[in-house]
C-alpha cells in the first residue's frame, strides 16, 4: 500500500542559481559564488552539500564552502576532475546552474558549542571545513579554542592562501600548516598532516576533532587522536562516496547499510568504526 500520497513537487527538480563570481584558488581548484534566482537563502548548515547541475552535462555533489552566517549568497569550491567539474570550471560570471539541496546532516555545530575544536584538513578537505571555520569565527564567543591543522601536498596546492594568512594573524585561531613536499621558497613545516600533532597541546576532556581529507588520511589521524586521548564520539569526519540523487534513493552512496547522503556525510568515529567498508 502507498504509505504516502503523491508529492506536489519533484525531488529531482533543481532551483536555478546565478554565478556571481569565480576565483581561482589553486591550480585545479576554483571558488564559485552563487545566488539562488528565487531570492531566498540556501539555508544550510556547515558540512552540508548541494547537488549542482550543469544542464546537458550532469549533476554532482559539492560541499558548501561558505558559512551560513554570511548571507545573500553561498560558495562552492571545486577541483576539476571530470565531466561536471571541468564544465563548471569553464563557466564565467553570469552563468546559470541548477542547485538542489542543501542535503546531508552537516557538522554537529550545537554539540561543538563551548568546546575546544581541532580541525584537521587534508587537501581539499578544507573546502567543507572552511564553512565550519568561518561559522565558528563569526560566532567566536560561543566556542572554545580553535586549532586548525592544514596539510597540502605541495606549497602550490595550498587552498585559500589569503584566508589562511588572515587566520594566521588572528589571536583566537591556532593555525598550523604543513606540506608533504616543500620547495625552495617554503619555510614552513614539511611532512604529512599527522606530523603536526606533536606541536599541539590539548585538553582531551573538552575537545572535538573534526577531520576531512582524502580516504587514506583518516586512519592515521584517528590513531593520533587516540594518542591524545580524544574519544571516538568526539572524532568527527566527513566521508565521500559516489552520489547521484543526494536524497536516499539511487543507492550509490551506500557504506554497508548506511546512505551517506542521508545519515552522513558527517559521522563520528564511533559510528564509522562499526562500518566495515567506511575507511
Amino acid at each position: 500500500m502507498i504509505s504516502q500520497a503523491v508529492p506536489p513537487t519533484s525531488i529531482y527538480l533543481p532551483y536555478l542559481a546565478e554565478l556571481l563570481r569565480v576565483e581561482s584558488i589553486a591550480e585545479r581548484e576554483k571558488l564559485f559564488e552563487f545566488k539562488l534566482s528565487h531570492g531566498k537563502e540556501l539555508g544550510h548548515k556547515p558540512g552540508q552539500f548541494v547537488e549542482i547541475s550543469l544542464f546537458g552535462i550532469g549533476e554532482m555533489p559539492i560541499s558548501i564552502s561558505s558559512s551560513p552566517t554570511r548571507k545573500g549568497s553561498f560558495e562552492l569550491a571545486v577541483r576539476a576532475v571530470g565531466n561536471v567539474t571541468n564544465a563548471l570550471h569553464r563557466l564565467s560570471k553570469g552563468a546559470t546552474v541548477g542547485i538542489r539541496g542543501p542535503f546531508g546532516n552537516g557538522f554537529p555545530v550545537d554539540n561543538l558549542k563551548g568546546k575546544d575544536i581541532v580541525i584537521v584538513a587534508g587537501g581539499i578537505g578544507l573546502f567543507p571545513l572552511r564553512s565550519l571555520i568561518n561559522y565558528i569565527l563569526d560566532k567566536r564567543s560561543e566556542f572554545g579554542r580553535l586549532i586548525i591543522l592544514s596539510g597540502s601536498r605541495t606549497p602550490q596546492e595550498r587552498m585559500f592562501v589569503n584566508e589562511l594568512e588572515k587566520w594566521h594573524k588572528r589571536e583566537d585561531v591556532e593555525l598550523l600548516e604543513t606540506v608533504d613536499e616543500g620547495d625552495e621558497e617554503w619555510t614552513g613545516h614539511v611532512g604529512v598532516v599527522t606530523t603536526l600533532s606533536s606541536e599541539v597541546h590539548i585538553d582531551p576532556e573538552k575537545i572535538f576533532a573534526v577531520v576531512v581529507g582524502p580516504p587514506v588520511m583518516y586512519k592515521f589521524v584517528v590513531a593520533e587522536c587516540h594518542k591524545k586521548g580524544i574519544p571516538d564520539e568526539r572524532i568527527i569526519m566527513s566521508l565521500e562516496r559516489r552520489m547521484k540523487c543526494g536524497i536516499g534513493k539511487c543507492g550509490h552512496c551506500q557504506i554497508n547499510g548506511v546512505y551517506v547522503c542521508q545519515e552522513g556525510p558527517v559521522f563520528t568515529y564511533a559510528e564509522v568504526k562499526k562500518l566495515r567498508e567506511a575507511i
Partner: peptide
C-alpha cells in the same frame, strides 16, 4: 518499493 520511494523524500515519478 512503495516504502523505499515514499520514505523521507517521496519520489513523484514512482508514486504517481
Amino acid at each position: 518499493l512503495d516504502v523505499a520511494f515514499s520514505t523521507t523524500n517521496p519520489d513523484i515519478n514512482y508514486l504517481s
